Amino acid sequence: MAKIYEFTPREPNNVVKLLEDILSMAKAGKLENLTLAARLNDGDVMTAFANIDYAERLSLIGHLQFHITQKIVEDLLDR
């Protein structure tokens, strides 16, 4: 199983900070591919994929789901 790196800036404008950090990583050649989903301020959802086939999209989505589940379990254990 792959290691999960939590990459969630907590400071103000964290969406911009996160995108800037991801862009820096991409420019440095550290990203093989990318899956992105975002809620737009009008309520729509944007999805984007780069350098990725359907199987790898599903794999990365599975990692996102695992990470969310892991955080829920950690929060429940901290209670």
Score class of each variant (00 low, 15 high):
70 Q>S: 11
69 T>D: 12
18 L>D: 00
47 T>W: 03
29 G>S: 04
58 L>S: 10
11 E>Y: 05
73 V>W: 01
21 D>N: 10
8 T>V: 07
36 L>E: 03
1 M>P: 15
79 R>L: 14
48 A>E: 07
21 D>I: 03
71 K>V: 08
19 L>S: 10
28 A>D: 15
14 N>F: 13
57 R>H: 12
78 D>W: 09
10 R>D: 02
74 E>W: 13
13 N>H: 13
46 M>N: 05
18 L>N: 07
25 M>S: 10
61 I>T: 14
39 R>A: 02
75 D>E: 04
9 P>H: 00
13 N>W: 03
46 M>D: 03
11 E>D: 10
47 T>G: 06
37 A>S: 05
62 G>Y: 08
14 N>C: 12
15 V>L: 09
64 L>V: 09
41 N>L: 09
16 V>S: 06
37 A>R: 03
5 Y>K: 07
55 A>P: 05
21 D>A: 15
68 I>R: 02
79 R>D: 08
50 A>D: 04
79 R>P: 02
23 L>S: 14
1 M>W: 04
58 L>I: 07
51 N>Q: 13
45 V>R: 04
71 K>A: 14
28 A>L: 14
75 D>C: 09
68 I>Y: 11
17 K>H: 12
51 N>D: 15
50 A>Q: 02
78 D>V: 03
11 E>I: 01
41 N>K: 13
51 N>A: 11
44 D>F: 14
28 A>Q: 13
4 I>G: 06
43 G>C: 04
13 N>C: 01
45 V>D: 01
43 G>F: 06
6 E>M: 01
72 I>S: 00
49 F>P: 01
7 F>S: 06
8 T>W: 12
5 Y>G: 06
53 D>C: 01
77 L>V: 06
6 E>N: 10
8 T>N: 11
48 A>S: 12
44 D>C: 01
49 F>N: 07
43 G>T: 02
56 E>R: 15
76 L>E: 04
34 L>Y: 13
40 L>R: 11
50 A>G: 07
36 L>P: 12
54 Y>D: 14
38 A>C: 08
70 Q>T: 02
24 S>Y: 09
5 Y>S: 01
47 T>P: 06
1 M>I: 07
33 N>G: 06
14 N>I: 00
78 D>P: 00
46 M>Q: 07
24 S>R: 08
57 R>P: 03
30 K>P: 03
31 L>K: 07
56 E>C: 04
64 L>F: 11
12 P>L: 00
42 D>P: 05
75 D>M: 15
15 V>D: 06
40 L>D: 12
10 R>H: 10
23 L>I: 00
52 I>Q: 08
64 L>K: 02
32 E>M: 01
51 N>L: 04
59 S>W: 11
